[in-house]
Amino acid sequence: MTIPEQRLRAFTYRIFKSIGCSDADASLAADVLVSADLRGIDSHGVARLSGYVRLWENNRLNATPNVRIVHETPTTATIDGDGGLGLVVAPYAMDVAIEKARQYGSGWVAIRNSNHFGIAGYHALKAVDQEMIGYALTNASPLVAPTFSSERLLGTNPICYAFPAGQYPPVVVDMATSAAANGKLEIADRTGKPILEGWALDTQGNPTTDAAAVKKGGALLPLGSDCEHGSHKGFGLSATVDILSGVLSGANYGPWVPPFVAYLQPVADQPGQGIGHFVGAMRVDGFRPVSEFKANMDQWIARFKEARRINEQQPVVIPGEPEYESVQQRKTHGIPLVDAVWQDLMGLASKFGIESPAAGH
């Protein structure tokens, strides 16, 4: 099923309204999810919608949060998300970071007591729109085993940098710090395909290509796959994300981060509050004139695109380039949804008495 962007956006907005979100919050949350689908990151788009609804149904998500600053200096802040949608809390935090950067050159905001915030790139790109460099990361429920272990202690813990350019699209480095995002395993599981070797371990700690391995109690591996291929680097990146997002903000961290799956309750004796994020913005003109920076960014991009190829049919791909191309394609031709996601959306439409996004299509 392929759905026009605006129909999918309107449907998603109505679902968030149905659980009690304000007009502004429902519109923002829908924008974050549909932006993920437009960018081709299907694992974090409307495929996640029913997950947020289930969290709300299990009293683990506050649809009307009082998002507020609880600690602040001229260039930093800590925000309490009041158990709200991370899709709403994180953009609020990035707005705070951008305003601090506008006044002082850079702004850095830690967030606690939040929930899953969608794609990190959405939040980092808010800074790019203001001629700034954006930074966004979040911890997540434990699915990843640290190097030399089979115990799930870390999340996929994505990290994102976004850099403005001139004639080219922004360079957006948006990636999980695990060997693969869990969403990729979910997509493979839904379509009945195996995953690549080096992505996951089974419950015995053995390598596996079973897409349902993590769902069955196995673990994802850090970026680098195993110790022989540099997994300590992925472990280090993931640890950095967890410490900045969780330990610094007062959110939960490591094995205490609450699960996104609603029927799994958070473990007892949590040291913090909810899920944590960390966002930042840096004014380019705090370092040099924006026009000069963009000209050099264009030169940097052009040179890498001209790199000598191993395979003549495969050029070097600039970070963020596939997502940019996906946006152009899907805005014109619509957003494709696999059957499992479509059935999920139909279940939500029935639950809340809302018209299907395909109605009239």
Rank of each mutant, 00 (worst) to 15 (best):
218 G>I: 01
280 G>R: 08
11 F>Q: 09
54 R>E: 00
105 G>W: 11
64 T>A: 14
228 E>C: 12
100 K>I: 05
38 L>E: 08
191 T>S: 13
232 H>N: 13
52 Y>R: 02
121 G>I: 05
353 G>Y: 01
285 D>P: 07
88 V>M: 07
83 G>C: 03
358 A>Y: 03
143 L>I: 06
323 E>P: 11
175 M>G: 15
143 L>R: 13
145 A>E: 10
31 D>C: 06
231 S>L: 03
350 S>P: 03
288 R>P: 02
189 D>L: 06
139 N>D: 10
215 K>I: 09
304 F>H: 11
221 L>R: 15
286 G>H: 05
102 R>S: 15
322 P>A: 05
314 Q>E: 13
177 T>V: 04
127 A>D: 15
135 Y>C: 15
306 E>W: 05
291 S>R: 07
214 V>M: 02
288 R>Q: 13
7 R>N: 09
304 F>Q: 11
84 G>L: 04
351 K>T: 15
261 V>T: 00
38 L>Y: 14
308 R>C: 10
309 R>P: 12
257 V>S: 00
161 Y>S: 04
163 F>K: 15
259 P>L: 00
277 H>S: 01
311 N>P: 00
12 T>V: 06
280 G>Y: 14
63 A>Y: 04
356 S>R: 02
146 P>A: 03
274 G>C: 03
183 G>H: 02
202 D>G: 14
249 S>E: 11
258 P>M: 00
236 G>P: 09
111 I>Y: 11
143 L>K: 14
151 E>M: 03
331 K>M: 10
229 H>F: 02
128 V>P: 13
213 A>P: 12
317 V>T: 05
13 Y>W: 08
271 P>I: 06
281 A>D: 11
179 A>C: 07
197 E>W: 12
191 T>P: 04
12 T>G: 11
218 G>D: 02
103 Q>P: 01
313 Q>Y: 03
175 M>W: 12
47 A>V: 01
118 G>E: 12
190 R>W: 09
322 P>N: 05
133 I>K: 14
313 Q>R: 12
174 D>F: 09
24 A>Q: 06
211 A>L: 03
218 G>P: 04
39 R>A: 14
306 E>I: 09
9 R>N: 15
182 N>V: 01
92 Y>L: 14
93 A>N: 02
7 R>Q: 14
234 G>S: 12
268 A>L: 06
260 F>R: 00
256 W>I: 01
118 G>T: 11
85 L>I: 01
311 N>M: 12
56 W>Y: 08
122 Y>W: 13
69 I>D: 15
255 P>D: 07
320 G>W: 01
31 D>Q: 15
242 D>C: 06
270 Q>W: 04
54 R>K: 05
256 W>Y: 14
211 A>K: 13
114 S>P: 10
237 L>R: 14
256 W>T: 08
251 A>I: 04
114 S>L: 07
285 D>C: 08
194 P>G: 04
308 R>F: 02
246 G>A: 07
100 K>R: 08
31 D>P: 13
307 A>W: 07
321 E>K: 04
26 A>P: 13
203 T>E: 15
328 Q>V: 08
329 Q>P: 00
215 K>Y: 10
94 M>Q: 10
141 S>W: 03
57 E>I: 00
172 V>H: 10
73 T>Y: 06
130 Q>N: 07
304 F>E: 01
170 P>L: 04
109 V>W: 08
38 L>G: 05
61 L>P: 00
132 M>P: 08
30 A>P: 09
303 R>N: 14
335 I>Y: 06
